[in-house]
C-alpha cells in the first residue's frame, strides 16, 4: 500500500517556460518532406495524435465518437509532406476539415468553427492567468462555462462547491491575459504553454443540445454520457501519451 506524505506548502518550483511554437515554426514543420511515412492506429483520433507526436505538432481535435472514426487506420504515403499527411488523414474521414490558427492545427467536424452551439466558440470577456498551473486554469475555465451551460435553477437552494485540482507532470505555471477570446483560443493558449500540446473534445454520436442550447460533449475517458451539470469536458495529452481504450 502506498502512503502519501504532505511534504511542503506553497513551495512549487518555478518552471522555465519553453518558447511556444510560433505560427511560422508550425509552418516549417508542416512543410517537412517525407520520403515514406506510415501510420497505423486503432482510431481516427489516435492516428491524428500519432502524427502530432511524431512531428511535434500542436493539435486541437474535435471528433465525434462514431463507428467510422473508431475504425482501424493503416495508411502509407510516399513523397509527401507532414501537411500532406494531415490533409490526407482528415480528408479520409467524411465530414471533417482542418485549419491552422494560433500555432495549432485544428481538426474538426465541418462547420464546427461557426457552430454557435459549440462551447468552443463561446467567448470569454476576460481570462487571466497569474503564475498559475494550466491544470488549475483549465478547471477555472470549465467552471466559468458551467455557469453558462448549466446554470443552477433559480429555485434550487444556494449551494456552494469546493474543489481539489491536482497538477503534475507536464504542467507549468503560466501568466497571460486574453480578452474576448473564444474557448478554442484559450485551450490553444493553455496547450502551447505546457507539455500538453494536444487538446481533445469528444462528441457523442447522438449530437444533442443542452437546455441552454450548447452541444453536449462526451468524455474521452469513459463511454458513459456526461451529465449536463458536468458539461463541458475536454482532455489534454502530451505528445506520445496513449489515448484511453
Amino acid at each position: 500500500m502506498y502512503t502519501l506524505l504532505l511534504a511542503t506548502l506553497l513551495l512549487q518550483p518555478i518552471w522555465a517556460l519553453p518558447p511556444p511554437p510560433s505560427e511560422q515554426g508550425l509552418q516549417v514543420k508542416l512543410r517537412a518532406n517525407l520520403e515514406n511515412y506510415t501510420v497505423a492506429a486503432e482510431t481516427f483520433p489516435q492516428a491524428l495524435t500519432k502524427v502530432a507526436a511524431q512531428f511535434e505538432i500542436p493539435m486541437g481535435i474535435e471528433w465525434i465518437r462514431t463507428s467510422a472514426t473508431q475504425r482501424e487506420i493503416r495508411r502509407s504515403w510516399r513523397h509527401t509532406t507532414v501537411y500532406g499527411v494531415v490533409e490526407s488523414l482528415v480528408k479520409s474521414q467524411s465530414g471533417y476539415d482542418f485549419a491552422i490558427a494560433n500555432g495549432v492545427i485544428h481538426v474538426f467536424p465541418k462547420g464546427a468553427l461557426m457552430d454557435r452551439s459549440s462551447f468552443l466558440n463561446h467567448r470569454i470577456n476576460k481570462f487571466e492567468a497569474k503564475n498559475e498551473f494550466a491544470g488549475v486554469l483549465s478547471y477555472r475555465l470549465r467552471e466559468l462555462l458551467k455557469r453558462t451551460i448549466s446554470p443552477p435553477l433559480p429555485s434550487s437552494p444556494a449551494l456552494g462547491t469546493a474543489g481539489s485540482i491536482a497538477t503534475g507532470a507536464g504542467d507549468r505555471r503560466i501568466t497571460f491575459r486574453l480578452v474576448n477570446a473564444s474557448v478554442r483560443q484559450i485551450l490553444d493558449k493553455l496547450s502551447l504553454a505546457t507539455d500538453f500540446r494536444i487538446w481533445i473534445v469528444t462528441y457523442p454520436e447522438d449530437r444533442t443540445l443542452t437546455e441552454t442550447g450548447f452541444r453536449r460533449v462526451a468524455s474521452l475517458y469513459t463511454s458513459s454520457s456526461v451529465a449536463d451539470n458536468e458539461q463541458p469536458v475536454w482532455a489534454f495529452l502530451r505528445w506520445g501519451d496513449a489515448l484511453p481504450k
Binding site: A7, Q12, F133, G135, V136, Y139, R142, E143, T161, A162, G163, S164, I165, A166, T167, G168, A169, G170, D171, S219, Y221, T222, V226, E230, V233, W234, A235, F236, L237, D241
Partner: peptide
C-alpha cells in the same frame, strides 16, 4: 465537489506525478 478529473470523483484523466513522485494540489 470538483475533483482532479473533470467528471467528479472519477479517473484517471492523464494527470501524473513529476519524476520525483510529487504532485501539486490546489484546494
Amino acid at each position: 465537489y470538483n475533483t482532479t478529473c473533470a467528471i467528479t470523483n472519477t479517473g484517471p484523466c492523464n494527470v501524473g506525478t513529476f519524476a520525483d513522485g510529487t504532485f501539486n494540489e490546489n484546494l
